[in-house]
Design a protein around this nucleic acid. Sequence first.
DNA 1: ACCCACGACGTTATAACATATCAAGCGAAA
DNA 2: TTTCGCTTGATATGTTATAACGTCGTGGGT
Lengths: 159, 159
Amino acid sequence: MATIGFRQHDHGQCIATALSQAEAKCAEQKLQFTPVRRRVLEILLDKHRAMGAYDILDILSAEGMGSQPPVVYRALDFLVQHGFVHRIERLNAYTACAHPTHDHVPAFLVCRECKAVAETETELTQGRLGSAADKTGFRIEKIVVEAEGLCPACAGARP
Amino acid sequence: MATIGFRQHDHGQCIATALSQAEAKCAEQKLQFTPVRRRVLEILLDKHRAMGAYDILDILSAEGMGSQPPVVYRALDFLVQHGFVHRIERLNAYTACAHPTHDHVPAFLVCRECKAVAETETELTQGRLGSAADKTGFRIEKIVVEAEGLCPACAGARP
DNA sequence: ACCCACGACGTTATAACATATCAAGCGAAA
DNA sequence: TTTCGCTTGATATGTTATAACGTCGTGGGT
Ligand SMILES: [Zn+2]
Ligand SMILES: [Zn+2]
Ligand SMILES: [Zn+2]
Ligand SMILES: [Zn+2]
């Protein structure tokens, strides 16, 4: 599985697989995969793009699952914490992880028009950033890599 | 000039140099280096860390240079646009560029405790991210690379 | 059975970050 | 001098995120 997001795929299958993987991982690690958490992940998988917390909240509240910000932020915190969802810093938004079965340092291609997101992985950690950290004694705990640009669809629509 | 930010330096000189470089570049490109813009850059250079827009605004307004958000956001837009300042997405904050004399793709080490920021450059653009972009036809326009962790001072204080 | 600790959730309020819009000032170009 | 473009002033509003505090249900120890 590599860069998905700008390619066709069986989306129903894609959602079902990801949900059951999440369920399995939570069972294994004794995490509570509660209805709200499950539904938030499902929404993110379904839309398959970066969504703002309040967009998600609108959907939740329309379904009677809580209508205040903390509801969705808590669910997102949980999902991010356990690697089911990534936060896109550039957009202050969230997207379901494309390869939740193994640990990784994600990198993203984010379309500035339609907000579609493709996730890949990065080798980084070494390179200039790593050596700069070493030289100064900085201890890296997390790395954010996000590329912004135009996806094929949006580039085609307005070349 | 490389990674500064976690090292000692003659800070008065550092500020003076950066300001006069900015002044020169604006003159050359017929940009207006207005008092507000100059002062905002100066504040960022002085603090030498990531600052939120409203932190800057507090200082400006204490000095009678405008007290509404648009004042500082307009100045920041200008400074970012022309490469004098970078936005740190991870913090929704801003920091003065450490090497404003040439174009570059900046990468940052950001201390999660004290918000100190060290800027280095990244080779990236190639690598897995670039090839993922090529494969899918995504056109990259901008790249954000930010590492979060503990700076030497904060790691020392609480090891 | 009882108590309690813990984690999740409900709710209110507020903090923090950012933009839309319209009007006024001001210097340079025409 | 008129016009134009850019900067700024001012008000209002939109968007994202967290603090604070109470409640509820589950599960473990007694
Ligand atoms: Zn991922
Ligand atoms: Zn697009
Ligand atoms: Zn820079
Ligand atoms: Zn620090």
